[in-house]
C-alpha cells in the first residue's frame, strides 16, 4: 500500500493519540520476526497489515508447529495449503533462510470458523500454543501478544476468546491491546500479576507507530 498523504496524516494523528509515554518506553524486540494467530481469528491479517504499514518485514504462519519455528526464517520451506497459510516476507539478504526467529507476535482472537478451517478445536489450539510458547521460553524468543479485536474478540469467562487470552497473554514479554479490548481491565491485571509490559493504545492503527519503534533498534 502506498503511503499517501492521507495515510501519513492518519498515522501522525494516531501517534499523537497513543497512550502518553508508550512509544518511547516499549521493550526491545529483534528481527527476524514471525507472526501467528492464537485462535485463528482474522486479527492476524490485521496484524500483518499493521507490520507492513510499519515497514517491518516478517514471516507468517497461522498454525506453525515447533518444528517449523525451529527451522527458522522460511519455516523449513512450508507452503500454503487448505487451512494452512504461510507468507515469507523477511528480508532474506539480512536474515537468510534458517536464521532463528528472535521474536514471535501472536494475534489473539478466537474464531470457530478459522479453527474449523484449520482442523482445530479450542482444546487443540490451546495445546498447540502451549508447545509453541514453551519453545519460545526455552530459546529466549521474545513474545509479543496483540489483542486488536476489541469487544468483538472478548467474551464471557471461559469462552473461546478468553481461553485464547489465558493461553498466551500471561507468557508474553509485551502485551499490546487496544482500549476497547481492555475495558474490563483484564489485560492490566494479567500484566500486573506477571510483571509484563503493557501498552494500551486507542486504536489498532496506533500499533503501526508502536511497531515502528519496537523494531527500530
Amino acid at each position: 500500500m502506498k503511503h499517501t498523504p492521507f495515510i501519513a496524516a492518519a498515522l501522525a494523528i494516531c501517534l499523537l493519540l497513543s497512550v502518553p509515554g508508550a512509544a518511547q518506553d516499549v521493550p526491545a524486540a529483534r528481527l527476524p520476526v514471525l507472526t501467528t494467530s492464537a485462535g485463528q481469528s482474522n486479527d492476524v491479517n490485521t496484524l500483518n497489515i499493521i507490520l507492513e504499514q510499519a515497514g517491518v518485514k516478517y514471516d507468517y504462519c497461522d498454525v506453525p508447529t515447533v518444528d517449523m519455528i525451529k527451522a527458522g526464517v522460511g519455516l523449513g520451506g512450508q507452503e500454503s495449503g487448505e487451512g494452512f497459510h504461510v507468507a515469507i516476507k523477511t528480508d532474506l539478504d539480512k536474515y537468510p533462510t534458517g536464521t532463528p526467529y528472535k521474536t514471535i507476535i501472536f494475534a489473539i482472537g478466537a474464531s470457530l470458523k478459522g479453527m474449523g478451517a484449520s482442523g482445530l478445536t479450542i482444546e487443540h489450539e490451546a495445546k498447540r500454543l502451549a508447545r509453541v510458547i514453551n519453545y519460545c521460553k526455552e530459546n529466549n524468543i521474545y513474545i509479543i501478544a496483540v489483542h486488536s479485536g476489541g469487544a468483538a474478540t472478548r467474551g464471557a469467562e471461559g469462552s473461546d476468546n478468553e481461553r485464547m487470552i489465558d493461553a498466551v497473554a500471561p507468557y508474553a514479554d509485551h502485551l499490546v491491546v487496544i482500549e476497547s479490548s481492555n475495558k474490563d481491565g483484564r489485560f492490566t491485571a494479567i500484566a500486573k500479576e506477571h510483571s509484563i509490559k503493557l501498552t494500551e493504545v486507542q486504536y489498532a492503527l496506533n500499533i503501526v507507530a508502536l511497531m515502528k519503534t519496537e523494531f527500530a533498534q
Binding site: M1, I7, A10, I13, C14, L17, N42, N45, T46, I49, I50, S111, K113, G114, A117, G149, G150, A151, A152, T153, S180, Q202, Y203, A204, L205, N206
Partner: peptide, 21 residues
C-alpha cells in the same frame, strides 16, 4: 483491513473483518 483500521481511527467506530469461508 485498511478500511477497518482507518474508520476506527478516523471516525470512531469499529467494524471487524471476517474472511469469507
Amino acid at each position: 483491513t485498511m478500511v477497518q483500521l482507518m474508520t476506527q481511527a478516523m471516525e470512531g467506530f469499529t467494524v471487524n473483518v471476517y474472511p469469507s469461508p
